[in-house]
C-alpha cells in the first residue's frame, strides 16, 4: 500500500509538472504567441524591425486571415514595406493598416479588431509610454481575444513594462546573424537571414526568464530556435550537421 501511494504521488507530480521542467535539456520550449491571448513585445527604439518580425513570424505566418496592424501616428516616416513582408511570408494583401492618432484611439481601434472574429492577428504598435494601457485595458483585450481566438500583440518600442493581464511579455532585439559565404573577390561576408535575441520576461505557466536565439528558417518559413549553435559558428568552427542550413547554397539555388 505504502509503495503504491508513493507511485501515485510520483505519477501525479509528473502529470502536473510541465514536461520542460522535468527534462529541460530535451524538451526546450520555443516561444509561441498563443491564440486568444494578449502578448507584449518590448524592444529598443532601433530594434523596431526585430519586434515586428517576431510578432508577424510567430503570430501570423502560420494562421490565415487578415492581419490588423494599428500604428500610432506621428512617425509616418517609417513605413511597412510590402516586399520585405513578402520575404517574411506575409502577403501584404492580408494586411489592414490603421493609423491611430493617439494612445486612446490606438487602444480603441485595437479592441475593435480583437472583437472582430476571423482575423489572423491584431498588432498594436506604439512608442514610449502608452497612456491608458493598464490592468483594466489589458483585461478587456484578453476577454475580447478569448472570445474570438485571435492573438493580440502589443509592440512597445522604448517603453517600460507595466503591470497588465498579458499572457506573455517578451524582450526582442536583433541578433548577429549567420553570415553567408562571401562571393568571390569580396572582403566581407554578406549578412545572413533574420536573427532575433528573445527573452521571455513573463510567461504564465511557461519558462519565464529564458532566452532564445531565433533564426529565420528559409526552407520552411517561420523562426527556428538556434540557441547554442550560433556562438560556435561565429567563431568560425563548423556547425553541427542539420542544425544550421547551408545558406549560401540555398541563396544560390
Amino acid at each position: 500500500m505504502e509503495h503504491n501511494r508513493n507511485m501515485e504521488s510520483v505519477s501525479a507530480s509528473i502529470l502536473t509538472t510541465p514536461a520542460w521542467r522535468l527534462r529541460p535539456a530535451l524538451q526546450r520550449p520555443v516561444p509561441v504567441l498563443a491564440a486568444g491571448q494578449v502578448h507584449e513585445v518590448h524592444g529598443q527604439g532601433d530594434d523596431r524591425a526585430a519586434g515586428l518580425a517576431f510578432a508577424l513570424g510567430l503570430g501570423a505566418a502560420n494562421r490565415s486571415g487578415t492581419v490588423l496592424m494599428v500604428r500610432s501616428g506621428g512617425r509616418p516616416s517609417l513605413a511597412l514595406y510590402g516586399e520585405g513582408l513578402m520575404l517574411l511570408g506575409i502577403d501584404p494583401a492580408r494586411l489592414l493598416l490603421v493609423e491611430a492618432g493617439d494612445a486612446a484611439t490606438l487602444l480603441r481601434a485595437g479592441l475593435e479588431g480583437a472583437r472582430c472574429p476571423g482575423l489572423a492577428l491584431v498588432l498594436l504598435e506604439s512608442e514610449g509610454p502608452l497612456k491608458g494601457y493598464d490592468l483594466t485595458a489589458s483585461r478587456r483585450f484578453v476577454l475580447a481575444a478569448e472570445r474570438t481566438q485571435t492573438p493580440v500583440v502589443l509592440l512597445r518600442h522604448a517603453a517600460k513594462a507595466q503591470p497588465s493581464a498579458a499572457h506573455t511579455r517578451w524582450q526582442v532585439a536583433s541578433a548577429p546573424s549567420q553570415p553567408l559565404a562571401a562571393p568571390p573577390g569580396a572582403q566581407v561576408r554578406p549578412p545572413g537571414l533574420p536573427a532575433l535575441a528573445v527573452e521571455a520576461l513573463r510567461w504564465r505557466g511557461g519558462p519565464a526568464g529564458q532566452t532564445w536565439h531565433l533564426q529565420w528558417d528559409e526552407q520552411h518559413g517561420g523562426f527556428r530556435d538556434t540557441t547554442g549553435t550560433s556562438n560556435r559558428s561565429e567563431n568560425g568552427q563548423a556547425a553541427p550537421s542539420g542544425a544550421v542550413l547551408p545558406l549560401a547554397a540555398l541563396r544560390a539555388g
Partner: peptide
C-alpha cells in the same frame, strides 16, 4: 482589388524610412 506583390529575390527591408 486583389493585386499582390511579387516575391523578390533581392533583399528588401521590413520597414522603410521615407524620406
Amino acid at each position: 482589388g486583389t493585386v499582390s506583390f511579387a516575391l523578390t529575390t533581392m533583399p528588401r527591408p521590413l520597414l522603410l524610412f521615407d524620406p
